[in-house]
Design a protein around this nucleic acid. Structure first.
Lengths: 234, 234
DNA sequence: TAGTGGTCTAGACCACAGG
DNA sequence: CTGTGGTCTAGACCACTAT
């Protein structure tokens, strides 16, 4: 047991505080002793307690306010994290054999719904790509992507027949802002042909709009083979 | 511009490093100067640089290894965080009027699939609850929940006719481990009756298994009204 | 205004892993 | 063995905000 005057690391402090909370010693809404008190309790510097509590706050376990002190959150752990990985990695990590295929590539004036979605000017040109990703030869993910050629003219010259646009984009604009939407959709005939499923099958769908340096860069809709699940733990 | 010998906060350092990365000054795989160098560059203490870089590492932007130094990650492992909130909050935050209703409540021997899923002993008793959540009187979410009575005998005495089991559980075992699965499903006749939709509609489904102090506590399957979307940004 | 968390510092020692 | 990040300290000042 960790008691008074025992030197503690920030991890010790963090896990001890957490166990006091999980065990119900401090209930939701309760006020936790302040940093100076805890520092004496745990026999460490205030900065050490601060780091432990800051991380608990980041994790959504506690709420901190100057002067008011630190309280256990009323509604705990509100966030689940999902890794947004590249399809290739997702498949190979599961031990599958990854294959990519470009279905079509056209340059068009951005359709109205896309212009609205990405706030593009009238007549904005966009590169429209349709691709498939296979795991062990079995359809895994259908990718329907639009790239804003005004913001990313280089995309017009890129060869997407061997490289998947996601990976090209990551190499080109590695760190961007994005908005993600998860939903359940129905497979239409066209999608079924690609995913080798039946019309009316439920399809897990991910939509992602991406901005870079304030400009809308790309919109993608990923449709997964029936049975796909996104999993996480906390 | 932030230059040499200007006092910087960890946020200054973090955002300057990040912009060097997003602007391509440092490409994926590149080695970043070490903490001591950056501290002189930014005119701050090493601890300040350390915090900035630690946060960038937590965010999946850079990779740090002792002796080897810090590099920009090859594949930015972006993590999307989704708010797993209580339905009541989710609905009221959108300005809806929340209503809860208990559909059924039975105590049963845990069915085989549940025992397998939660690793329960044979003959484990479970409380089976079916509930509905409405927004402005319109079906919003269907909740099908099992609570392990061996781990949580108190649940047998709880009154779920007015309090939703999620909220009761949060108050009882606030901080627990969970496994979450997101998927797309088809609505069957029974679900349709509850959600007021049509058989064959795609339904966004969340399954969550929860553990507390090593024991499986509850399994829940949430089915959302057609059209539901889970959204996040990064 | 006073109490609390937020941050910075200058220095120290340690842990790990590359060469 | 040595360079790097990981962590801790004791003290300081600042920034909020409840009262």
């Amino acid at each position: 047991m960790i008691g008074r005057y025992m030197k503690s690391t920030y991890k010790d402090v963090k896990s001890d505080l957490l166990s006091k909370i999980t065990k119900g010693e401090w209930a939701p809404g309760d006020l936790i002793p302040n940093e100076v008190e805890l520092a004496t309790t745990y026999g460490c510097a205030r900065a050490t307690v601060n780091r432990a509590m800051r991380e608990l706050a980041d994790d959504g376990i506690i709420e901190r306010r100057r002067k008011a002190g630190t309280r256990v959150r009323m509604t705990p752990v509100r966030q689940a994290r999902f890794d947004i990985s590249v399809v290739r990695d997702e498949i190979t990590e599961k031990g599958g054999d990854y294959r990519y295929s470009l279905v079509s590539r056209t340059v068009d004036v951005a359709p109205d719904w896309l212009r609205a979605r990405l706030q593009l000017p009238v007549d904005a040109k966009a590169l429209h790509l349709v691709c498939m990703h296979y795991s062990d030869g079995v359809p895994y993910e259908h990718e329907d992507r639009w790239i804003n050629l005004t913001a990313l003219p280089d995309a017009a010259d890129a060869d997407f027949s061997n490289e998947c646009p996601t990976e090209w984009l990551l190499a080109t604009i590695p760190f961007s802002k994005a908005e993600i939407n998860l939903s359940a959709e129905l497979a239409d005939q066209k999608l079924c042909d690609y995913l080798a499923c039946s019309v009316g099958d439920p399809v897990f769908s991910v939509e992602r709009s991406t901005w870079w340096e304030g400009d809308a860069v790309t919109y993608v809709r990923l449709s997964y083979r029936p049975g796909y699940r996104l999993t996480t733990r906390y």
